[in-house]
Simulated scan of single mutants.
Amino acid sequence: MKVAHFIDSGGLYGAEKMLLTLCKEQIKLGLEPLIVSCGVIDEPPKALEIACEKEGVPCLPWRMKPGLNLSGCKNLLKHLEPMKFDVFHSHGYKFNILLALLTIRPTNYQLVATIHGETKSSGPNKITLFQFADRMLRFRFDKIVHVTTQNRASKARRVIFNGINIPKNNNSPAPTNPTKVITIGTLGRLSQEKNYSFLIDAMHHLKSKNLKIKCKIHGEGSLQSSLQEQIEKLQITDTVSILPFTKNIAEFFDSIDIYINCSTTEGMPISLLEAAAFNKRVIASNINGNKTLLNKLYSNPILFDFSHDAFEYAIESALKAPISEIIAARENISELFSGSSMAKQYYLLYKEA
């Protein structure tokens, strides 16, 4: 079975990591996946394309004019036609819209879309318009996959949890040391929905209480300058640092005590799975995507509302969490959120009439 995965990638974050894992596991199952990575003309190799080459995942870098480029997508489909794919699998609103508009029934391939989550945007703008068009055109797909149970499943709409390959990690969860400086960390695109402005404000609040704590934010994105200005204005450059996106997540997790996700919206956050797999203490904002995941990993998940007091209490709770709870979370990933389980579920979905 040949599967073409379509994505216009903005980095190597949740959706891209999920797709890499899915393709590696599909190869093990005997499928022939291809990642079609879209970018603009003359754009250098993307992080996902570089990762594909390193991981041995077939990838077709495709360059065309930005936006909903119907003619560029027509040329792409014409290029793919001789390869005779069985499944066209879209990951993101851009190709959800383009494939829905350009597919003429009947076809020799299935149309499948995975909804990884939506970026929240205030007021009418280009993003909200694209998201509206995406939702209106989903009926043209054979199967829609959601990554969290907050969406209602049906025959055409399924829920398949994102999965990861469990890292070989022999490090036991570290007991807390009340005399040392606690380091919390996070990985993600520097965008509005990740809510790092709240995190910076909360760290300023903790510093004013003379707590021994530091924060590392690894990522890149459109809000980098404004977030750095916020840190400098609050005079907490010695407490909060914004660092470049890192590919070495093992080194990152080894450098922190607590992992935090403070997003305002999430699908199925891969970074929380990775943190639990590396035996890290985890706290997260009390939103559907985070809550769905952590309730399956932990008997007592630590979730916080968007207030400084709730954030402080979450950190205190994480430091008191029993090591047995941290170990159990890693075991639950193996059972519920493995890459192989995810790939098998997609394979069964593709095979259904």
Rank of each mutant, 00 (worst) to 15 (best):
F161V: 07
A310H: 15
A328V: 10
A310W: 10
K207N: 11
A321R: 03
R330W: 00
P301E: 03
T183K: 04
F245E: 12
G267A: 02
C215V: 00
F304P: 04
G72H: 12
K74W: 01
T237D: 10
F253N: 08
S324G: 01
L227D: 05
F6T: 02
K214I: 09
L137I: 11
K320S: 01
S222N: 11
P175A: 02
P45W: 07
S122W: 08
I302P: 07
A156D: 03
S37N: 10
L187I: 15
N295T: 09
V181R: 03
F245G: 08
L349G: 03
D142M: 00
L48E: 12
A250S: 14
D257C: 05
I217P: 02
P124A: 08
K168A: 14
F6N: 03
G339Y: 09
S208W: 06
K65D: 15
I256T: 06
K296D: 15
P61Q: 08
T265F: 12
I260M: 02
N261I: 07
H79V: 09
N195A: 08
N169M: 06
V40L: 04
H89D: 10
K247Q: 15
K212C: 09
E53Q: 15
N290R: 06
P66A: 06
S154N: 05
L34A: 04
E118K: 07
G185N: 00
E274I: 08
N295E: 14
